[in-house]
Design a protein around this nucleic acid. Sequence first.
DNA 1: GTCATTCTACCTTCTGGTAGGTAGTTTGTC
DNA 2: GACAAACTACCTACCAGAAGGTAGAATGAC
Lengths: 192, 192
Amino acid sequence: MNNLSNTYDEILACARSLIIAGGYNGFSYADIADVVGIRKASIHHHFPSKVDLVRTLVARYRKEAEEGMANLEHQVSDPLELLRFYTGYWEACIMDDSAPFCVCALLASQLPVLPEEVGLEVRAHFRSLSAWLTAVLERGARQGEFQLMGTPHDEAEAFMATVHGAMLSARAYGDPKIFGVVTSSLLERFSS
Amino acid sequence: MNNLSNTYDEILACARSLIIAGGYNGFSYADIADVVGIRKASIHHHFPSKVDLVRTLVARYRKEAEEGMANLEHQVSDPLELLRFYTGYWEACIMDDSAPFCVCALLASQLPVLPEEVGLEVRAHFRSLSAWLTAVLERGARQGEFQLMGTPHDEAEAFMATVHGAMLSARAYGDPKIFGVVTSSLLERFSS
DNA sequence: GTCATTCTACCTTCTGGTAGGTAGTTTGTC
DNA sequence: GACAAACTACCTACCAGAAGGTAGAATGAC
């Protein structure tokens, strides 16, 4: 494979940050070419079409996210601590502005105008994140650490929604701190 | 003024639903022209530039929202009931697919690539919605109806974030019901 | 006649994408 | 080891269509 190619990865990294800023229609091959320092046509060599590029990018993002979740569970076992790590990860990304939004959350907001193949990947991420959170909450409830008001699944959906909404608010206000405000109030509910 | 013009309003309504679907870069004057049944150039007569159109649209949306909130308070006084009406309004919009996303929430997600004038309007909506929710929660707490864990402001931010996140999840899953699942679990916390 | 509205016809720039070529590296075969 | 074939990564030079936008002429209501 040509995953060794530096340019290939650079294109993906660049596209990722452009998508985080403005979504699928918010960037062009020309934008990437400018940043990476190659010509438009050269991007087509690595990714024949824009759909290819974004599908690859989201697939890779999903894989990284799933590996991250699996990895986290090897290092941390306490359910509350797991949730704290998850929100803490995003808080760090937002505070240092390195990746102030989840790629899939942003793309999901534009789902009706997304190419189908990309939409399927985005949807899959939501399902896998929800499943992970459900499992964590369920375990916390079994261990008596969490007092859930609804089913683990419903609470997981509410948890995920709040985190995504907190990203949005941080962006809307132009104030990274709001993410921490919302998520810490979210975690408090579980820690009591 | 020419607010009497039917076409003017039709253009705004059409642009609104196109923005709800895909955001600022997700539609063009040609798209609107097709739907409304006029030529591209005629849209420029009503809205000289795309920025004019979207700024007007968001300003009007904000005004409607603020009127809606003020109106609601004339009809309903119970804080919990107010929150229920607010989420219920969106649940209806999402279920019948008439406006399955908040215009400002969607635009906020693309804030970094938005024209500045539009961004300012979007930000203003977040502030006014947050202020209203804060006031409602504060009143509920004073009346002893709500037991808030944080300040009314922080809880209001969390509330708003959850509602926006619930819209996103409904879209991501392609399942309108998820909005109700998340918001009803949200309301339950306050009703106990 | 005036004014608002809409039109046709056009412009420039950007869009994703293609064709064809070049230099350098790998590979397979003798 | 030599050498041709194939492949990689990039290039220049295009293309058709879409983007937002403009100029100026018809239309039509008062």
